[in-house]
Each structure stands twice: as C-alpha cells, then as structure tokens.
Nucleic acid binder design. Structure first.
Lengths: 324, 324
DNA sequence: CTGTTAGCGCGTTCAC
DNA sequence: GTGAACGCGCTAACAG
C-alpha cells in the first residue's frame, strides 16, 4: 500500500489540502498543524509524488538541458572529445541543484526554431549549454517558458544569462605573467573573428600587456601544431620573449610539450591537462560547475515566479595541481 | 488550449481509450482505426503526456542515476576532478538512449541501505555509476525495482551488469608492447589489493608478459611521482627495460613527462591527456560512453518486462589523437 | 487559517 | 475490437 497525502492527512487529523499546503506554502499553515503533519509524514515515511504534482500544475516537472548543433563550424571546442570533462563538470553543477529539488532533467539537441517550439511543450524550463552565437540566441526569441542562457555570452545579451567573463580571464593571464616578472610575453590565439570568447580573452590580456606579441593560428582546425613550431621558435628568440600565454590549455600544452621552454606560462580552461604540467603552467578556470549551478538555481527561482537578473561568474587563476 | 488524448479521439471519431491503445498496444487496434488516430494526432501535433501516463501506471517515469559515496578510500580515481571527463562521457551514453524515450533522469548520491530504500520509491529503475566494491553491491540486496550495475564488476557478480573487461585491457596493453617488439617491459601499478580493476589489469598484462617487471606504487595517494622517479630510473637501467605500461594514463604520463624515454609506452583510460602525447603513447579505452549506453538500454528493456543478461564491453586500444 | 471539491491526462478494467 | 467510466496523487479554486 502506497503512502499518499491522504494517509498523512488522516493520521495527522487534518484535511489533505493542509498536507499539500505544508509542502507547498508552509507559511500559510499554522505552526501547530504544520508540526503535526510533519510528524505524521515522518512516521509514515511519506514523500510527495512529484508526478501527480506536476500533472496537476499542468507542468511537466522537467527541465530541458539543451545543447546546440555546432557542426560545420571551422572551430568549436566542444567538438573535441577531450572536452567531455567540461560537459561532466557542468552537469555536476546542474545536478547539485536539481538533486535537492523535485525537478527532473531531460537532454535535448536542438538545431532549429521548430525544435525549440517542440521542446517548449515538453518541459517547464530550459537550461542551455554553451550558447555562443547570435544564431543560437535567435532560437530563444519566441520562447515563452523560463530559460537561462550560459555561458559564453556578451554583456549586452538579452535574456537571463549566467556568463563567464572572458575578458577578465585574459586580465588574469596577463596579471599572472606580470607577477612573474615577464616583460615581453607571447600570446597565442586563433579564430579571433569568429570566436568571440577568444577575442575577449585577448582584449583582456592586451589591457595588461598592450605591447604583447600576438600570434594568430588555426590550431584545432586547419593547422597542426607542428607546422607552426618553427614560427614560434623564431618569434621566441627574435623577440626576446620571456613569458607565454595561450587562448586555451590545449594550444599552450601543445607548445610546451614540444618546446622545453623555461619561462612562465599560462593557459585557459583549467583542463585536466593541468595535472600533468604541475606548477609549470598556470591556467584560468572558468568554474563551469559553479556557473551551471548558478544557472540552474536561477532557473528554479524563475520557475517559482521570482524575478532574476543576469550574472557573471568571474574566472579564477589556478596553478598546477588544480586539475588533479 | 492543450492537446490531449480526447482532442485526438474526437477528431478521429474514436473513443479516448482507443487512442490510448494505439500508443500502448497498437496491435490490439484495427489497422483502420490506428491509421485514423495517427493522422488526427499528426494534424493536432499531439504527443502523449508521459507524466499522466506514469502517474496512472503508478510509476515515476524516472530513472535514477546513482553515484556512491567513495570518500575515505585510500585511492579512488573518481575523486580526481580530472575524471570529470569520464563522468561526462558516460552520461553522454545514457543521454543518447534516454533522449529517445519518455524517461527522465534524476541524480542521486547514495551511501546507506536506507538511502537505497528511499530511492526505490522515487524511481522506476536504477542506473549505477561505477559500482566497484562489495559494500556497494550489498546495497542492492533488497532492491526490488530493476537496476543495472556498471562498470568495474567481476564476472561472478550477481545481478544485471554491464562491465568492462579489465583483464582483457591488460592483455591489450601487453599485446601492444609485444607488437612493438618489447622484451622486458616495466608495468607500474598500485593499490592492487584494494582496487580490483588494478589487479585484473595486471593479471591480463602478466598473461602476455609473465616475466614483466612490476612496480607497485601509491601514486595518487600517499606517494607523489617525484619521490619514486629515482627508483624508476634505476629499474629502467638495471633491468634493461625496453617498454613501459601503467595501470592508468595519469601514472604513465606522470612518468613520461619527467623521464624522456625512447621506448613504447601504453597507459589505460584513453584520457584526454592522450591528445598531448600523440603517437608517443597508446592507451586502452574502456569506451564508457558505449558502456553506459548499453547499460541504459538494458534497463529500459528490463522495465518493459524483458529478460536481460549481463554483458561485457571489451576495451579497445587507441593510439594518440583519439582523445582530441 | 482550514476543509471540500473538482479536475490535470492518462491506463485500465469492464461491459458491449 | 471498442467505448464508458473510474481513479492514480495531487493542486487550486472556493467556501466557511
């Protein structure tokens, strides 16, 4: 025999509606009755059936975790299976918040506006994974259910965002090298025009080192690291480089693995790779777990009728073993 | 206005029960009516409300993805944040299967039998993440809902398992070195007694190289890599080692990063690290995505009343860029 | 503040 | 084969 609201109600000698209120609007019930209901629930081992609740609320009880189709791009980090760690870490953030609630999670891959419309009928709220282009933003135009956008978003973005501050991340990279006494750093990047976060990181870095030597590459797409190694070596010596930064760990470590450099180095992403290099390289941690945790919290608040505002999670500099 | 079973029924000129049957037992409805129902559903854009369905079925419509509390162990790989990639990759497997179904996923952290009992009332099936000790196995003793165990499980384990063959993984490592012409390999491992998968991998390796030099360490816990480097160097030279294998990538790469060895090397896990070393090191891929995909499939089949049997996913040798 | 009542959308008996 | 009717466990009016 299953324990329902009614079992609790009869044991506590209250109406079933009161039990319901105790769980949904505790303040509207007198402390006395509330106590009695809790006790009855406790002894019976009652827990509300969130299915029935959602059904009655005409909701779905479901949050959608949506990813966007990024195929066909010249460069997209998420395409590297290596970045499963990022997916996992983000999801851990979501999980932490959702685990405490009665919400469930469903995964979706979305490509078109039609997909989004269909999605809208199947969930109560949308959690987006890595919205980073205006085309993706446009998908949210006609969405009338609560949603929150993450994580590579510009400040000017409309809609509720939880974003990372890529520019500040660049500043952190610069500050790190400066603290290490570097005077003439090399900054390796790529896809500046098409990948906004890269541009922002560089901008931040340049705000610390306006005169930095910047190398634009296509690593990760057309170019392999080996083909530009000679160029890098040449720059290193001819420009008297004394520190190195890169738009991401993958690029930085690609270089460090091949050129035994004895100078401060800082990457971006706090990827698991960091564990290997130990103190030899610093990195900037987006803190995606925390970011997606925040995003989920905001979504839940939105769903409970609260007004929420966009916020930014500041990245953090990590050195060495952080990834272990 | 929402589209329900009744909307479809009236448009198709059938009873709502028939619509219901079309979706749940299509064979019990005449082809004629079935067709009419499908057409009506199509034009209305109807999709069944799985909440109401689950409610009526007295189920929850939810699958639990449970992780076990591994704190307090001398060694547990999952404790390294680096292994978020593993979590992510596994979840992608789950997601692929679940995305096609009407099931939802909830995350749980479980520690005691009481936790499991509570869990049992909140979901219809349990998907376990990395059950690897008998204590965890014991948690499933009194579970009466369908569940599937993954992934470091011994062949003799009771209950429905989808496991990886760690012994065979060790064989793959051995074969790789043999193909490279190695005669006297060094195998680095640790926690053999407490971590069964490690023991199995070693056993597999030794079946190929019975005379292999085996080094037992505590890397990852008490010992840091640097403290045993001298020992490794000594073994390498005194024993004329011509190939190196390790129980996992982390250990192997820790060594390779510090000792510039010119000999074949093979790790385990196909971690993102592989991307960095390129062809310099091979690794064994557990294929966790595929593994958890299979586990989820089996769970769904179980839930639909089918009889399922345990199965094993064979690991695969990967070289170099696999992780990119 | 509390109880009564009417559904949410669906699966499933039971007659026909 | 098919349809009518009931109720899964709960929330949200509405009275009192």
């Amino acid at each position: 025999m299953r324990i329902t609201r009614d079992s609790v109600a009869s044991l506590a000698n209250v109406s079933s509606a009161t039990v319901s209120r105790v769980y949904n609007a505790p303040d509207s019930v007198s402390a006395d009755l509330r106590q009695r209901v809790f006790e009855a629930a406790e002894t019976l081992g009652y827990s509300p059936n969130c299915l029935a609740a959602s059904l009655r609320r005409k909701g779905t009880g479901t949050l959608a975790f949506v990813e966007f189709n990024k195929t066909g791009r010249p460069y997209y980090w998420g395409n590297f299976p290596s970045f499963d760690w990022f997916f996992g870490r983000s999801l851990r953030g979501v999980q932490q918040v959702i685990g405490q609630s009665s919400w469930q999670l469903r995964f979706y891959n979305v490509r078109t506006k039609e997909d989004m419309q269909a999605l809208q009928k199947q969930c109560d709220g949308i959690l987006s994974y890595d919205v980073d282009m205006s085309e993706e933003l446009a998908l949210f135009e006609d969405i009338s259910i609560p949603y929150v956008l993450s994580h590579h978003l510009h400040e000017s973005t409309q809609g509720l965002c939880v974003r990372t501050d890529n520019r500040y991340g660049g500043v952190l990279q610069g500050n790190y090298l400066r603290d290490k006494g570097c005077v003439r750093p090399l900054y390796i990047t790529g896809f500046i025009e098409s990948v906004m976060p890269h541009a922002e990181r560089l901008e931040g870095f340049l705000s610390v080192y306006p005169e930095a030597r910047v190398l634009h590459t296509s690593i990760g797409a057309a170019t392999s690291i080996t083909s530009i190694l000679p160029q890098i070596e040449q720059i290193l010596s001819s420009d008297h480089i004394d520190g190195i930064a890169a738009v991401n760990d993958l690029t930085l470590f690609d270089v460090l693995m091949r050129l035994p450099l004895d100078m401060p180095a800082v990457g971006y992403d706090a990827s698991p790779f960091s564990a290997l290099l130990g103190a030899k390289a610093a990195s900037v941690d987006i803190q995606c777990g925390q970011l997606y945790q925040k995003a989920t919290q905001k979504l839940l608040l939105l769903l409970s009728g609260q007004q929420e505002e966009s916020s930014t999670i500041q990245p953090r500099l990590v050195i060495g073993s952080a990834g272990m």
